[in-house]
Computed example of a mutant assay.
Amino acid sequence: MRTILLLFLSNLFMTTAWYWHLKYRETDLWKVILISWLIALVEYCLAVPANRIGSYQFNAFQLKTIQEVVSLAVFVGFAAFYLKEPIRWNYLVGFVLIVLAVFFIFKKW
């Protein structure tokens, strides 16, 4: 559970670093890059321990799968609430297919 919580927090910072500036297009690009790098530093301070801790329970493929699903969940919330982007049905279908991939990654065959 610590791994997933750390990955969630890490993705919250990384999504913010990558997309916050879309509402501030008048800001100089160099400023946006600098601010984004500072935000991303926090992300790394969370992601590295998340993966280290998670490696005792999950393999690398599973860790990456968890990270991607968490990343999509965080992004959907960020895009909908911060950027005010609509959530369309085809996006949800695509995300469901990705979650279906989780089944195949974690299934013991």
Rank of each mutant, 00 (worst) to 15 (best):
M1L: 09
M1D: 05
R2G: 11
L7H: 02
L7I: 03
F8L: 10
L9G: 03
L9W: 03
N11D: 08
L12W: 01
T15L: 01
T15A: 08
T16M: 04
W20I: 01
L22N: 12
L22W: 08
K23I: 00
Y24N: 13
Y24F: 15
E26D: 15
D28H: 12
L29K: 14
L29I: 15
W30V: 14
K31S: 13
I35N: 10
L38S: 11
A40P: 00
L41A: 15
Y44S: 11
A47F: 07
A47P: 00
P49T: 10
A50M: 01
N51I: 01
R52I: 14
G54H: 02
Q57K: 14
N59W: 08
Q62R: 02
L63G: 08
K64F: 09
I66M: 04
Q67P: 02
S71F: 07
L72W: 03
L72Y: 03
F75N: 04
V76P: 00
F78M: 03
A79C: 05
F81C: 05
K84R: 13
P86M: 06
R88H: 10
W89M: 12
L92M: 12
L92P: 02
L97N: 07
L97R: 03
I98Q: 10
L100I: 09
A101L: 09
F103T: 07
F103N: 13
F104R: 06
F104K: 10
